[in-house]
Design a protein around this nucleic acid. Structure first.
Length: 365
DNA sequence: AAACCGGGGAC
DNA sequence: GTCCCAGGTTT
């Protein structure tokens, strides 16, 4: 694994030779321009941002102009970039720079992060780019680079892992040339921060990292162990909740009892089998429709998967002497009906219900 | 369809 | 402080 003190020099050399140098916001130290680009680049790609960035600057060359712009004009300028809360925060931020900081962006990350739309990572980026501050960024790209190069296991969104990554990111920052000054040069901090972003955006990409061109290929844990696809560790798939239901198959040949589901919710408006929570309820409800307790028989339970949950269905079959009413299940909007099973094709049935009834009657038709 | 994303806001 | 979401894009 690469020694921490070797990381920054190698990244700096790579950025010099192979990093991006022509992005519109790279040749300025104006915190306003850097801030604007960083906010636009949150969740949005460089190519998309460039024309918006130019338009914004043409209309608002400085923070005072942006602060003075009417809300609607800001939204219009932003329109098409998405994530509109960013635009609202951008405007509020410009106004706060005017009122709280006398029209000048604060030069330290803590004060920057107190402004709307500027979190810890964005604050560090502005502090490093505009003021050469010794601050570490940690956005999605950087998390990916660090997880791979240093072989960090665990989902980076998890608090413990993220905290460790912030500590690592800070430990990797460029050191000043020995015996010269307390901090690296402004130029080094800009280049280093840009290098992290460039590496993540151009080589160490999510899907197909270009490891042969990477300055860390010889030491990168992910590359050496061929685990580029496993690192960074993905979020644990959230366990989909499982619900259980008992479906009643009340039969009075050739009729079967169906229940119209309410218009909203799962299977809204479809005809389905009556559902109860357990077998005791099944017997109670069956009695209302003339069910014969001695005919009670369990069919094989099975699982139906929805996007957001799993439904475990336990079908229960009960014979009824005659099609008979009892009170209606549910509400007037959700009535029941005895349906001739030869007419089932004309009813909209949920797939698993169709499957139950087909299995039951298919061979008999 | 599912993973991913920085910040805000709720708790 | 910590957890979770809104509103998007990428794979």
């Amino acid at each position: 694994m690469i020694a921490h003190e070797d990381f920054a020099p190698r990244l700096l050399a790579w950025q010099r030779a192979h990093g991006r140098h022509d992005l519109p916001w790279q040749r300025t130290r104006d915190p306003y321009r850097i801030w604007l680009s960083e906010v636009m680049l949150q969740q949005t790609q460089v190519a998309t941002v460039i024309p918006y960035y130019a338009r914004f600057l043409a209309r608002c060359p400085d923070v005072a102009a942006l602060a003075a712009l009417p809300d609607d004009d800001v939204m219009t300028l932003w329109s098409g970039l998405g994530y509109y809360s960013r635009a609202r925060n951008l405007h509020r931020c410009a106004q706060q720079v005017m009122t709280r900081f006398g029209g000048r962006f604060p030069e330290n990350a803590v004060d920057l992060a107190s402004l709307p739309g500027i979190g810890r990572s964005t604050a560090a980026a502005i502090a490093a780019f505009a003021f050469g501050r010794h601050e570490a960024i940690l956005d999605g790209n950087v998390k990916r680079v660090l997880a791979r190069v240093f072989g960090i296991e665990g989902f980076p969104g998890e608090k413990r892992i993220e905290t460790a990554m912030w500590t690592l990111a800070e430990s990797l920052l460029p050191m000043p040339p020995r015996g010269v000054s307390a901090t690296p040069s402004d130029d080094d901090m800009s280049r280093y921060t840009q290098g992290l972003m460039d590496l993540g955006a151009t080589l160490c990409t999510r899907a197909n990292p270009d490891c042969p061109r990477c300055p860390f290929a010889a030491d990168c844990v992910a590359n050496l162990t061929h685990r580029q696809r496993e690192l960074p560790t993905r979020r644990a798939p959230k366990v989909t909740p499982t619900r259980r239901t008992v479906m009643l198959i009340l039969e009075a040949e050739p009729f079967v009892l169906l229940h119209r589901r309410p218009p909203t919710g799962v299977w809204g408006g479809l005809w389905s089998l009556p559902e109860v929570e357990d077998e005791a309820q099944a017997r109670d409800v069956a009695r209302e429709f003339g069910g014969q307790p001695e005919s009670f028989s369990r069919l094989t339970p099975f699982v139906h998967a929805f996007t957001h949950f799993r439904l475990e269905i336990a079908p229960v079959r009960i014979a009824c002497g005659e099609p008979q009413g009892g009170r209606l299940l549910g509400t007037p909007d959700a009535p029941v009906a005895w349906v001739d099973r030869r007419d089932l094709d004309r009813y909209g049935l949920p797939a698993p219900v169709r499957r139950i009834l087909d299995a039951l009657h298919g061979s008999l038709i």
